[in-house]
């Protein structure tokens, strides 16, 4: 049974991923803190759940979503698909010819960010810490919108060949300006949400899209232009999360003003 063998492979790989973390945790607990772990059995059970869960998750993605998603990214970027309706190849490909690629980039960015386990974890924690003020869904949708924007812009950049650092530096300027205006409580969480949005689900699909685009757009090299998508997907959630907080802050204040009148 090839599926069982594949499953075992993934389990071993996940185990190798978890092992250094477990070693650091238990090493420090036993050697430095020298105290028993509270609820040890529950914690161990939790680790087993995480291990098995992540293995199943990765194996399922490998079997169901990744092959199809990667194939799609390749097909959508091929000239045969782009000029299928127009018949003749116009010779010069403009950035507007890639409309379906942008739509795909936005949709796949949004939906993979919603499914990202690390983001779910941070959203749960933020919800607990803020005593419910930050909704799990609100945060995740804000981040997902940011990732969608980032991936779409990343695709646009590869098609047009504009330098990566212009976009990144402009994004930083927006982040800095927003930082001075956003509610103070949201700032650290917003910064964090950039890094968590790109993980197990997003990276492989987005990398496939980037490489497919860079390989098929004339004049781009997959080696030099294929990078940068992840960086975009990390930057834009910071902007949208702060924007979300600014928006809800502004609406709450307006409501309060209305009541006072």
């Amino acid at each position: 049974m090839p599926e069982a063998a594949g499953m075992l492979d993934v389990l071993i790989q996940t185990l190798r991923d978890v092992l250094p973390i477990a070693a650091v945790l238990f090493g420090f607990q036993v050697l430095v803190l020298r105290r028993p772990i509270p609820n040890l059995r529950r914690v161990l059970l939790g680790f087993v759940y995480v291990l098995v869960g992540l293995s199943l998750f990765l194996q399922g993605l490998e079997q169901a979503l990744f092959p199809l998603g990667k194939l799609m990214a390749e097909q959508l970027t091929q000239p045969q698909f782009l000029f299928d309706g127009a018949g003749a190849h116009p010779g010069v490909i403009g950035w507007t010819d890639y409309v379906w690629v942008y739509v795909f980039a936005a949709c796949i960015g949004f939906s993979t960010a919603i499914a990202e386990p690390a983001l779910i974890a941070v959203a749960i924690k933020a919800n607990q810490v803020s005593a419910g003020a930050i909704g799990v869904w609100g945060l995740r949708v804000a981040v997902a919108l940011g990732v969608a924007t980032g991936i779409t812009l990343g695709a646009f950049r590869i098609v047009t060949g504009l330098p990566l650092h212009y976009f990144i530096i402009a994004g930083y300027v927006v982040v800095i300006v927003q930082t001075t205006m956003a509610p103070r409580l949201i700032v650290p969480l917003a910064y964090d949400s950039g890094g968590v949005s790109t993980s197990t689900v997003t990276v492989p699909l987005v990398a496939a899209l980037g490489l497919g685009l860079a390989g098929n757009v004339p004049g781009r090299s997959p080696l030099l232009d294929g990078f940068g998508m992840i960086a975009f997907a990390c930057l834009f959630p910071i902007i949208t999360v702060m924007g979300y907080a600014q928006l809800s802050h502004w609406r709450a204040r307006r409501r309060r003003d209305d009541e006072n009148e």
């Binding site: 529950r42 914690v43 161990l44 059970l45 939790g46 680790f47 087993v48 759940y49 995480v50 291990l51 098995v52 869960g53 992540l54 293995s55 199943l56 998750f57 990765l58 194996q59 399922g60 499914a115 386990p117 779910i120 974890a121 749960i124």
Partner: peptide
């Protein structure tokens, strides 16, 4: 897998 992972998160990590 996602279900187990989220459960394990609250129990262990």
């Amino acid at each position: 897998g996602l279900t187990l992972f989220i459960q394990g998160l609250e129990l262990g990590l």
